[in-house]
Design a protein around this nucleic acid. Structure first.
Lengths: 348, 348
DNA sequence: CTGGTCTCCGGAAACGTTACCAACCGGGTA
DNA sequence: TACCCGGTTGGTAACGTTTCCGGAGACCAG
C-alpha cells in the first residue's frame, strides 16, 4: 500500500525537454556552455514537472553532502538554541544544512547522535561534548578525517579545535566582586559537577575565595527548587553564616532568587546574589540580578567560522595542527552589574 | 587536495569477511536466515573496519529516508524550541531523524526550507506556516503526496491536518477575567497582525469586549520596548483612560510589564496586566504575572502522533480526508492566575 | 582541403546499497 | 534414484545523479 513516493527524475526532465541527462545536470548545476534556447527548454521542463534534485543520489556521486551536524545537550536550553540559531545562519550562508541532535548529556545518546550523523556523511561536526567521551570522537576523527570543532567545552584528550568561554575567570571575577563589596560568607551553588564548565566555574570561585582567605562554601547537590530553598534556609538558620550566593547555572539562579524572596530575605541588603549566565527578565525583576554574561553569539560564530574554514580552505591533514595539541579559543565573559550584588544602578 | 573522504563500504566488509554483499546487507538489517557463524564473521569485519552504512545509498534504493522535517519561525524562540525538543523525542522513538529549519516568518525562507527538505526527500513534514503561503504547500502535498501536518497555525486553504491552540477562547477568557475584575479600559497590545495566532487572539479580545459593551483599545504597532513604553505612557497621560493591559506576545508582555514598573505605575492596583504565553520567571517577578498558558507539549505531541500515524499506518491516499476539508485539532489553553490581574494568590 | 580549437551535447560508467532470483546443500519422501 | 523443500548464500540489476570521454558542428588559419 506504499506506492505513491514518485517524484520526477532527471531522466524524465531530459526526455520531456528532448535533451540528454547530462544537459539537464548542467542546467541544474549552473554550468556554462549551454545554448540559451536549450537552457530555456530544460528550465521549462523542470518547472512543468516540478522537478527537485534527489539529494541522496547527488551525495552518492559527488562526495560532499553540504550538511553539518550540531550535537548539543538540549535544543530547548536557551543557551544552545541560541547557538543553533546562529550556526544555522552561518551554515545557510555556506549553502549547508545544519542537523541538530540532542544528547541530554548522556553518553549513549551522544554516541547515537554521532553515529547517525556519520551515516548521513555530514561534512563536519560541531559538538558540545558530554565530558570524557572524546575517545570515540577522536577515533572517528582519525578514521573518517571529518572536521570537528568543540563548542562550549573542550574535548578531553583534545586534538580537536575548541571554542569555549572563560569560565574560570568569569567566576573568579564575580566572586571577587562580591568580596570587594565586603561579603565574606559566600556560598556557591553548583550545577552538575561532571560538566566541564561547572567545574571551571567552581575553580574560579575557589581561587578567588582562597586569595581572600575566605572559607569555601560549596553546595553540589542542588538540583531543583526544593533542594535549593532547603540549602539556603539551612544556612540562614545560623545567623551570620550567609552573606551572598553565587549560582553557577541559570535555573539555579532563578531558584535561589525565588527562595530568597520566599524566605523574606532582603536582597541584597542581607544576602546578595550573582548568577552565571544571563536570562530573560534578569534585569526586570526587583532587585535586578547581576550575572556573568557569556558571549553566546561569538562562541557559536567563531565555532562556525572555524569549521567552515576547515571545510572550504586547506585540506584537513592527518595532523590538524602542526604544533601538536590544539590550544582552545577562549572567549571573555563579562560581569553584567545590576542590583542584586549590592551595587546601586549607577555605581560599581 | 580533497581526497580523504573514504569510509569503508559494504563491499569491503564483504570481502574481508569472505562473504557476499547480500549477506552483509542482511546482517546490518537484522534479517534472519543467517548462520550464527557467518553472522559473527561479518560482525567482526564490520567492527574492525568501523563500517557505517551510507545513508544516501540506502535512501536511493529503498524509498524511505526515515527523516522528517520541522519548519518553524525560529529555533531560538522558547515556544518552538520546546516543540522541537518534544518532536525530536518522538522522531527518535520512531527511528527517525528530525531536521529543523527556521523561516523567520519570511516567505522566501519558508520556500527555501520546504525545498531543501523535499530535496532530502523527508518522509513527512511538520510546519508552522507563515501565513497564506499554503499554495505552495498544497501543490507540494499533491505532487509528492508527502504527509504534512500544520502546527500552531492552520494552513489557509487547508486540506492538511493541523494542531492548534484555542487562541480565540484563550484570549476571550483572559479578557473576561479582567472585565470580571471591574476593569473597563482594557488595552490590547498585539504582535504582528499577519500571524494567524495573533489575529485569533485579537478576535477573542474583541468578542469579550463587545459582549461587555466596552470600547476596544487596540495597539498593533508595538514592536520593541520603546514603542511599548511610549504607547502606555501616552494612554496614562489622560487619566482614567487605562485600567488594564492585555499583551498578546511573550516579549511584549515583558516589555509592557517593565514599562509599567519604569513609569511607577502600581500593578495591579492602578493598571492590571495579563500576558499571552507563559515564560520563565513570570511567577517569580513581583507582582507575579497572570498569563494564558499554552499546551506546548501536547501541541507538539499530537502533531507528532498525527504525522507518524500517517507515516506508519494506512496509506496516504490522494484524498487525505474522506470528509473533504480537515477539521483542525484544537487544544485548550488555560488561564494561569497569579497576581498581576488583581487576584490575590489564593482567590479567583 | 586539412588540421586545430572552440562550443555544445549525449552515452554510459560509476557511487553504495537493497531486492530479486537462482543456486547449493542436506535430508526426507515416493 | 528422482524429487522436492527449507535454510543459507551470492550474483546482479536497479535507484538518480555526476563525470569522463568522445562526437558533431562551426569557424579560422595555414
Amino acid at each position: 500500500m506504499r506506492k505513491p513516493r514518485k517524484l520526477p527524475t532527471l531522466h524524465e526532465v531530459a526526455k520531456r525537454a528532448g535533451v540528454g541527462t547530462t544537459t539537464v545536470s548542467r542546467v541544474i548545476n549552473g554550468v556554462e556552455h549551454v545554448e540559451p534556447q536549450t537552457l530555456a527548454r530544460v528550465e521549462r521542463a523542470i518547472k512543468e514537472l516540478g522537478y527537485l534534485p534527489n539529494h541522496a543520489a547527488r551525495v552518492l556521486k559527488g562526495h560532499r553532502t553540504r550538511t553539518v551536524g550540531l550535537v548539543v545537550p538540549s535544543i530547548a536550553d536557551p543557551f544552545f538554541s541560541s547557538c543553533a540559531e546562529v550556526l544555522q545562519g552561518i551554515a545557510r550562508r555556506h549553502e549547508c544544512l545544519l542537523i541538530v541532535m540532542a544528547t541530554h548529556n548522556e553518553k549513549s545518546m551522544e554516541r547515537d547522535a554521532v553515529n547517525t550523523l556519520m551515516q548521513h556523511r555530514v561534512d563536519g561536526f560541531i559538538i558540545a561534548p558530554s565530558d570524557s567521551e572524546s575517545g570515540e570522537l577522536c577515533s572517528l576523527l582519525m578514521r573518517a578525517s571529518v572536521p570537528i570543532v568543540a563548542l562550549d567545552r573542550p574535548v578531553a584528550g583534545a586534538v580537536v579545535p575548541s571554542v569555549v568561554a572563560d569560565n574560570f575567570v568569569g567566576a573568579q571575577h564575580a566572586t571577587r566582586h562580591l568580596i570587594a563589596h565586603g561579603y565574606k560568607k559566600i556560598a556557591c551553588l553548583t550545577g552538575e559537577m561532571n560538566l566541564f564548565t561547572i567545574r571551571e566555574r567552581v575553580r574560579g570561585y575557589q581561587a578567588a575565595m582562597a586569595a581572600a582567605n575566605l572559607k569555601v562554601l560549596l553546595h553540589t547537590s542542588i538540583h531543583d527548587y526544593a533542594s535549593c530553598e532547603n540549602a539556603i534556609a539551612k544556612m540562614l538558620r545560623q545567623p551570620g553564616s550567609l552573606d551572598a550566593v553565587f549560582t553557577l547555572k541559570n535555573s539555579t539562579t532563578v531558584d535561589a532568587f525565588q527562595a530568597l524572596l520566599q524566605l523574606r530575605v532582603p536582597v541584597p541588603q542581607k544576602v546578595a546574589i550573582i548568577g552565571y549566565d544571563d536570562f530573560q527578565l534578569a534585569g526586570t525583576v526587583r532587585p535586578a540580578i547581576t550575572v556573568v554574561q557569556q558571549p553566546i553569539q561569538e562562541l557559536a560564530q567563531t565555532a562556525g567560522q572555524l569549521l567552515f574554514r576547515h571545510l572550504n580552505g586547506a585540506a584537513v591533514s592527518a595532523k590538524p595542527a602542526p604544533t601538536g595539541t590544539q590550544k582552545p579559543v577562549v572567549l571573555k565573559t563579562s560581569l553584567l552589574i545590576r542590583e542584586s550584588c549590592g551595587c546601586r544602578p549607577n555605581q560599581p
